[in-house]
Structures are given as structure tokens and as C-alpha cells.
Amino acid sequence: MPLKVIEKRDVEPLVRHLMERFQVVGIKKKDGKNTYGVIESPAELRLDSCATITSPKKYFFPQRETLLQFAVDGSWEPQAVVEAQPRIIFGMRPCDIAATWMLDMAFSEVNPDANYLEKRKRALIIGVDCKEPCDEYCFCKSMGTLEVETGYDLFFTAADDTYIVRTGTPEGEALLEEWGKAREALYEDRVKLRAVQREKDERFKEALEFDVEELPRFLEDSYRSLLWDVLGEKCLSCGSCNLVCPTCYCFNVLDEVKLNLSEGERYRVWDSCQLEGFAKVATGENFRERRGDRVRHRFFRKGKYMKEMFGRFGCVGCGRCTRACLVHINPIEVYNQLKGGE
């Protein structure tokens, strides 16, 4: 795929151009915090800021999403609802691109989920490279998500007054083609890109004291560790970690009746495996009643179960759960403790 170059000053016009055809989503300031939101004017888009509270998964898997419309008395066939619109996510970080890959797998395996996949397929992803770590909580380098090879339509890397743009798909290439203001990269641009990548890599430090491929084994060996009890005593079971996680995709399904009392809709909402009732069945049996068991379940999903199911880790090292955790449970510390000082 060809390498292109865009002047930094041309990004605003590009965004304005894209906004004519797409809903453009990107990182902007909201109440002083960085957040992914719909870009209302091109100047809002902040390509150089990171560490958003929530992840862009909400554009493929919204917090609340209608699945079905029905008649309460069943007098007409229930209608499946799939909401999707053309959208560009401009400025997705490598960790979130890696997380999107994970969600793609989860929602396309076995029983493809149209509600996710239609939104996903109608979206174009423009990635932006990180320059330095968000803060002391991110550990993407250790999780292997600092660099992404695929999963984007275009990928921007800042170099001096330009963005050097990798094209990942024909759709991404067509987008630039049609806009017409990107130029072909020259030899100097390629040299510059490699230098920027090298400098970037040096700024990111390894946070784990072991090769992450060993994580499933460390978890397996620690299933009965007292560490889970200790974490369970700290954890407040608030579920914040699940809400901010870019790869958590568990949900609950609920019905709501309209005011006319004859029709209604069924919708899904994000759910949390940390909440006490998550695995409870109607007869009262609760299969993960202890908080430590629920904390362990989450760490095992991220570090073992999803890896076994989909071939990659459910944790991308974005650090969001640590930032959101009220009692400072930090996966870097947990993973390193699991290693056990071998």
C-alpha cells in the first residue's frame, strides 16, 4: 500500500471535507478531559492528545443499543433492529485499533452479530501514532500493541510539519485520492518515518518483567493464589474497569414497553462481570459470589481465555482500568506479582 504525506495545516480542511459525507468521531475535550466524541467543528479534533476515559468501542457497541421491536401481545412479527451509519473514527490509537481487532473476532465468530458488524463495516478507521506514553499506567509496548500492522484504513504518523500516512485498505486510499491534497511520499519522508518510529519506540518502556507470552501460564499456575483474595478485599465491585475497557463486550438484555403499552423494544446494555449478580441464576445459585473470584475471572479473561479463543490477549495495555479504579488495582502490578519473582 502506498505511503502518502499530508501537511499538518491541511488536516482541518480534510476533516471539514470528510464531515460532508461522514459522521466524524475523534478525540476532543469534554469537561477538561479527553474523550472520543462526534466532531462538530474541525478545530475540535485533537490528534495529539491521548488517554481518553472511555474507548471508541462505543461506536460499534454502544452503551445502549436497540435489538428488537415487538408487540407486547405478539400480534405482529418482532422486527430486528440494526442501527448503523457511515462514520469515520479519526485518530484511533494503536491500542484501540488492537482492541477493535479483538471485538471484531468476538462479534464475528460462531454467531455473527449484525448489530456490531454493520456499524463496524460502515466505519472507516484513521489511526494516529502515539509519540510518547499516555502516563505511567499504559503498557502497550509490553502487550505488543504499540505498533499495529492492520486494522486501519489510514494511519497517521506526525513528522515535523507533516503527517506521513500509511494506507491500510483501498477504501482508505480512495478517501485520500478523492480529497486530492495528499502527495506521494518521497525517499526523505520514508527516512523521516523510520526515525520517528525509532524515537517513539525508545520513549516507551517495558512495564512487564517477563515476556507477555508467558502470561497465560503464570495465570494458570496462580489460579488458587491468595492474590485473588487480596484483590477481592480491595475491589469495590463497581465495574468501572469493565466500562472503560476497550475489549470488554459482555452485555445484558432488557425489555422496555412504550407509553402506549402495546409495543416495546428490547435493548442491550453494557454489563460487568464484577457486579455481584452477573453469574447468578434464577434459583438463587451464584457461581461467582466471591469478589476475589470475580476479579480473577476478569484477569483470566484478559490474559488467558480470550487469548485461547481468539489468539490475542484481551488486554491491550491501554491503562484505562487503572486510571478508573477507585482502589488502584493496576494490571501491571498484578501481572508482575503473578510472575512470582521467578
Binding site: L67, L68, G74, E77, P78, Q79, A80, V82, W101, D104, M105, S108, N111, P112, D113, A114, N115, L117, E118, R120, K121, A123, T150, G151, D153, G168, T169, E171, V253, R266
Partner: peptide, 20 residues
């Protein structure tokens, strides 16, 4: 992943029940 690799899906989704 590359969105072109994602499966085509029936818009009559896995969440639609049949009436009985």
C-alpha cells in the same frame, strides 16, 4: 482487522425470536 474480512451478516439478526 480489515473490515473486508468481516463476515456478511443477516440483518434478520440472531436476536429476533420467532412467534409461538
Amino acid at each position: 482487522m480489515d473490515a473486508r474480512l468481516l463476515p456478511t451478516v443477516d440483518l434478520d439478526t440472531i436476536f429476533r425470536p420467532r412467534l409461538a
